[in-house]
């Protein structure tokens, strides 16, 4: 029973990380209509910025987190404004541009920091114990920060005029635009928010898991999977799906063996999508 609870905590922790990644991914898709193949790149960048700030500059970890968020958000803003905006109406071009940007980011990181994983560990060690339930303090902090960030994103999206505009754009860009919503104002903001969240996740998670130039690949795959499962463009759907993915991955890894986690997940997602092709909370697409 203790093992079951501890696995559940790990699953929730994973779910909160996937939520941060998936929220950004789904906002970009919903608002801009872009599948951002560079999403994993911003995760990796967040990790390396935090590593550089703490290991090379000697800054404290919380400050490094803020710099990681700020720098990934700023790069996201610049990328959207200077590059993506020019091809935003051409879906194939946006795929190529975001994919190309990911390759540029990964290669730049490789050239600057090398292929070896640097020594980057979470500043808090130790394990919290209650009876037979174990939960590392590092995971607890990650979970706390992720949950706080999720609450902040939800507040922004559901309680502010800016958020209402973003949700409206995500629900129906054509209608929002027809009513006068200025897409060019919202696009870079949404993109920067999403990449900042990816950077935050990278800065939080890479010291626990691993930091290397290629660790963005599975991040993209899991973000994509989560967002499709939740329903493309759906904020709540992405959140629900992220926690399902985290819990399934954790339990499958523990009870079926490490290699079965991803397999179980993909089979489950396939079954759900056969029953609900629009995802758990997605809506059927209407084209006007």
């Amino acid at each position: 029973m203790e093992g079951f609870i501890a696995t559940g905590l790990i699953g929730i922790s994973l779910g909160s990380q996937y939520t941060l990644l998936a929220l950004g991914f789904t906002l970009i898709f919903g608002i801009l209509g872009v599948v951002n193949f560079a999403h994993g790149g911003f995760y990796v960048m967040g990790g390396y910025v935090a590593y550089y700030c703490t290991s090379m500059l000697g800054l404290s970890y919380p400050v490094a987190l803020l710099i990681a968020v700020g720098s990934t958000a700023m790069l996201g803003w610049l990328f959207e404004t200077l590059i993506l905006e020019r091809v935003i109406e051409d879906h194939q071009a946006t795929l190529m541009v975001t994919m190309g940007f990911y390759l540029v980011m990964a290669t730049a990181i490789l050239m600057i920091f090398g292929a070896e994983s640097p020594e980057f560990s979470f500043p808090i060690a130790g394990v919290w114990r209650a009876g037979g339930v174990y939960f590392p303090y590092a995971n607890m902090v990650v979970l706390g920060v992720c949950l706080a960030a999720i609450v902040l994103v939800y507040w922004l999206v559901y309680r502010t005029n800016l958020g209402r505009a973003m949700r409206a754009m995500a629900e129906d860009r054509a209608v929002a635009s027809a009513l006068g919503m200025r897409t060019k104002v919202l696009f870079p903001f949404a993109f920067a928010l999403a990449t900042g969240l990816a950077g935050l996740t990278g800065a939080l998670v890479t010291p626990i898991l691993a930091l290397a130039p290629h660790v963005g690949d599975p991040v993209l795959a899991f973000s994509f999977l989560t967002v499709i499962l939740g329903g493309l463009g759906s904020v709540t759907g992405a959140t629900v799906a992220a926690f399902i993915v985290g819990l399934v991955e954790a339990y499958a890894a523990v009870y079926l063996g490490g290699s079965k986690g991803a397999l179980t997940l993909f089979v489950l997602v396939l079954i759900i999508l056969v029953i609900r092709p629009q995802g758990l909370l997605g809506k059927e697409v209407r084209r006007a």
């Binding site: 949700r167 629900e171 129906d172 054509a174 209608v175 929002a176 027809a178 006007a288």
Partner: peptide, 12 residues
């Protein structure tokens, strides 16, 4: 302009 189908933000 208006649209042939319903043109609202359904979750609002």
């Amino acid at each position: 302009r208006s649209f042939q189908q319903t043109a609202t933000f359904s979750g609002h």
